[in-house]
Design a protein around this nucleic acid. Sequence first.
DNA 1: TCAACGCTATTGTTGAACAATCGATACGCA
DNA 2: TGCGTATCGATTGTTCAACAATAGCGTTGA
Lengths: 222, 222
Amino acid sequence: MKKQDLEDRNPSLGETVTAGIRRLLVEGAFTPGQRLSEISLCERLGVSRNTLREAFRTLAHEGLVTHQPHRGVFVTRPDAASIVEIYRLRRFIECRALSEAWPSHPAVKEMRAAVEEARTCRERRDWQAVGTANMAFHGAIVALADSARMNVFFRQILAELRLAFGLMADKEWLHGPYVEMNEQVLETFEGGDTTAAVALLEQYLAQSERIVLAAWERQASL
Amino acid sequence: MKKQDLEDRNPSLGETVTAGIRRLLVEGAFTPGQRLSEISLCERLGVSRNTLREAFRTLAHEGLVTHQPHRGVFVTRPDAASIVEIYRLRRFIECRALSEAWPSHPAVKEMRAAVEEARTCRERRDWQAVGTANMAFHGAIVALADSARMNVFFRQILAELRLAFGLMADKEWLHGPYVEMNEQVLETFEGGDTTAAVALLEQYLAQSERIVLAAWERQASL
DNA sequence: TCAACGCTATTGTTGAACAATCGATACGCA
DNA sequence: TGCGTATCGATTGTTCAACAATAGCGTTGA
């Protein structure tokens, strides 16, 4: 008997709600630290409290919201330590995945598609979508390692990082420069120089960390 | 009133149930592939269906059970590919954590404690407890890397791996040899030869993978 | 001022109810 | 007999209403 992937088209209501709130979160519809009231949210989404609470449980497991017993769930407020930790994990995971990748791995096509998508969205100046495409690019890098569990874990920490992006005002500066950087990594890798591609990737991640941390410091002082 | 830390132990009923089922799962109280009926389980645990379903959601997220819409939740049946993937991740994560570890990291004490615990339990021929101590040892190795998110992820894949252990009859052969191996890794590391410790660890993980895979093949043919 | 008290809004948990779906059984037809 | 199909029962999906438990807040009283 073959087990179907999670591709399976059966979006139960609970999963739909979870995905909906997740999108609201990473798109910055809520402010970090904000409390999410069960009553107001389940009215707004048109679902029952039980269903909403199931969604909260999942999101709390993913780290996007924080559950405090008898107080409620709050949008996770990323701290500087979390940002540093996540970037450390990203360098660890992404660089390893890229350095050991099979050059004609199917995920390379996903990387290319993400670069194209990012370029298109940048022309529309839709920075939200550029950010999504950027996430897809780095997710594809991790997919090179062919580990379903690692893919899930990585998507999770990227979503958490994106909460921090929500704190930043200038989305163009946040996402814009990485369109070229990603493409450069991809072309270096496709050109066969894996070592150089990894070095570029590591350098870009370090730069991104500096930018995000600086922005975090700015808003923390408000 | 002073604000408590998030350490605060407030095990809600749902979390208690989740932990209880998790323990039953890793201790092999259920057989892989078995369906967990909501009605019978919530009677057995004395909780309502809603609470039980919250627990199921969490466990499904951890990979210990598999949710099939409108059919129920089933104890995840590990396949050979999962075992291979998990060991690949273990080598990746544990070896890196150990190789970059600070020699006097607090987690080293945890490693030592786990080794002692394993030895004690082996004398009692309590192989279940030896397995738990073994998991604690490897969890401590990962803790050397000081990444809370990685710690959670690693505990999760170890729990999933332990489902596969449940398929094996001879627990002594499964856990017994690793008491010495773990101690050897620890002492080599404490002796200052990190490179050699990592090499030992990698070798032991490879051996463990062979044993578990062989056992899996045997039971798969039944 | 401040401590103790009780109030209120919210979360935690339950049980029942109904809808939706899966799997199996029984039926009809060639 | 063999096979497709209608039907049925059991289980899951979801909602609702109710009550318990708790945190935060305001009031009272010295």
